[in-house]
Design a protein around this nucleic acid. Sequence first.
DNA 1: AAAAATATTTAAGCTTACTTAAAAATATTT
DNA 2: AAATATTTTTAAGTAAGCTTAAATATTTTT
Lengths: 219, 219
Amino acid sequence: MSIAIENFVKAIYKNGKHDHNDTKPGNIAKELGISNAAATDMAKKLAAKDLLHYEKYQELKLTEKGTKMALNVVRKHRLWEALLFKLFDLSLHDIHREAELLEHQTSDLLANKISEFLGNPKFDPHGDPIPNSAGEITTIDTSIPLSNGEEGKTYIISRLMSDDKEFLDFCVQNGLKYGNSVLVSKQFSKNKMTQILINHNTILLNEDFTSIIYVNEQD
Amino acid sequence: MSIAIENFVKAIYKNGKHDHNDTKPGNIAKELGISNAAATDMAKKLAAKDLLHYEKYQELKLTEKGTKMALNVVRKHRLWEALLFKLFDLSLHDIHREAELLEHQTSDLLANKISEFLGNPKFDPHGDPIPNSAGEITTIDTSIPLSNGEEGKTYIISRLMSDDKEFLDFCVQNGLKYGNSVLVSKQFSKNKMTQILINHNTILLNEDFTSIIYVNEQD
DNA sequence: AAAAATATTTAAGCTTACTTAAAAATATTT
DNA sequence: AAATATTTTTAAGTAAGCTTAAATATTTTT
């Protein structure tokens, strides 16, 4: 299957993971940077290939086959991120950009070799789970957005759910990375700001950031 | 530039390295598995982009710009081969196949990181020289095909100039690899067979093989 | 040097993955 | 519930990268 198809299916998978699905052609088009018309066309084409269910004006829904394809691409993406992160001194954003290309040119054999080399990791450097070779995600995600954290509690950062350069650079600069602890010192309900303590520094975050930083309660 | 263009330019570069150029559209077409007509079309298109010189019915010749592009792709290919060879237990043939895809999806930044990680190697696992980041091959190749070896002399294998699975499997099985010594015990001029001693084993090779195994005299 | 074989080029056509523009349906606002 | 705005769909068209078939040029053989 082509790169365009892999990316289309992947975009539906990603946009369908939220509570409120965003998988109408227009949203997928926006995600991929193509026109709405192109997305509708593609949706029809992929329905004919049994990769998704298409009904006029409705949300696009992946079939089992389509989900498998998406997870296979996601697996390769996250394995590349993990490998590049381990081997090279590159920013998370750069790593994401490289993985975005490499994911489509990677045989299942190579993906398995990368996985094995890394000790079959369950998470990538963003904290995102890596599907296994059968296309299953076996870990259970109990994390919550930092915006839902409670005052006075300490949390462990589990996922940084964005590939935005500005955001990731900010995270690196402030020690906001996978595995680190944060204490929620104050939640401002009015303007939805959150004050946290990390590495002995107090910083103030707005909801744009606290809604994509996911954390787990400390055991 | 597209993958098709990169592969086209690379094919001309490879076919132009022999003493007798094989860079007419038909030869490039054969190399790439496309029709002659497609190769002619592409040649005209690339001439307009100043990547090659095209004259009807003549050999295709890369411009400086085209050569640079070819060397850049070759560099990425060979760096990937070197990295995959180092990290994973994969056959040279498999490594070649993966590199053939990855080479087109690799930024210059990533290529440089791979090179640095490997200690800026000058050769890939086939013994082929790796162009530097400026697109130059700085090593001088003094090797000769094993078919030109002299009886009684010992040589060091420097290059295995093929990506054919059968050939590479045979080489692995018999210890014919980059850096190993071979003694030419007998040259049969009649049928162009060569008897060699390697790892205490005597084996007989025909010209198909001895013409693509390149060696250097021992210092 | 002529005939036969081979290679190159031209021409017409196909598929993929897009585009823009206009029509039709759905969502939102008032 | 009507009017307005937004989305989705349809339709027509484009560029890249191929294909096959036929015309033309070059090479090889005799």
